[in-house]
Design a binder for these strands. Sequence first.
DNA 1: GCTGAAAGCCCAAGGTT
DNA 2: AACCTTGGGCTTTCAGC
Lengths: 158, 158
Amino acid sequence: MDGVPIDEIDRIILHLLQEDARRNTNAEISRQVSVSASTVGKRIARLEKEGILKGYRPEIDYERAGFPLQVLFVCTAPIAAREALATETLGVEGVLNVRELMTGEKNVHIQAVGASNEDITRIAHKLDEIGYSVADEILLRNEYSQPSVQFRPTTDGK
Amino acid sequence: MDGVPIDEIDRIILHLLQEDARRNTNAEISRQVSVSASTVGKRIARLEKEGILKGYRPEIDYERAGFPLQVLFVCTAPIAAREALATETLGVEGVLNVRELMTGEKNVHIQAVGASNEDITRIAHKLDEIGYSVADEILLRNEYSQPSVQFRPTTDGK
DNA sequence: GCTGAAAGCCCAAGGTT
DNA sequence: AACCTTGGGCTTTCAGC
């Protein structure tokens, strides 16, 4: 499954995809790395097959897109049901992201967006219905994501 | 800046980009919506210019990519410095994501990955150095993201 | 495992309605 | 605004190394 850890070339490919996964074409990447475009394509296919690359998503400014309310629900879920719940949670309209924490009583963080308070209330009810206990409901002020994590493991990648 | 709110066609474009921002080309999108490929391209350019589309990122399984440790740092930052800090935080190697909360004393959540405990310790020190008070450090068990949020605002998109 | 070439497909620009 | 055309560029596949 993950016999080959990923080498220097893979790391550069991942890095360039992180910068712009839509515009950085195989051909463009091949120019910044000393392999051909078809090799870049094959390596990306391999990274996808191994589950390292799981998809390509646009980053959206939800506020400007008509969803001004961003909320973080801090929840408690029975440990046993946690994984099953997480999947179901993504089915709730407005939910963007679910994080399961290893420790602590409040062990699940759910990020959601809505166009109005009505939406947020509906989501909260839904979460309760699914089986969460919603401990806290915090408005998000801003979110920043890393455009480009450095791909240089301390184990120097051998 | 955001005079035109975004119509039904824009919403379908965003939806298809959310499913696969790399493979769903303008031409492919034009087939699923009754406009030409060049119109799709121009609408995407407009959405980018208005800041609704902010980038295209690969979703990476960091664990398989050699970063088995995922941590959530729950921090407190002086309200005034919060925004400036957030930007600086993204510069710390290993940091993936920063969320600013509107309320509560622990007002910033920072998500980071590392190859070893050493990395995590280094990040924690760095956050402290930058000016955060790190209140909690929780191992993340799993994270799920929404592949595709339904783009239908309750205001029915006029 | 990588390369290179060819066929088919895609994109961006400019002109038209 | 949206459309069409078109030249240049891209992706994919496959033979060959």
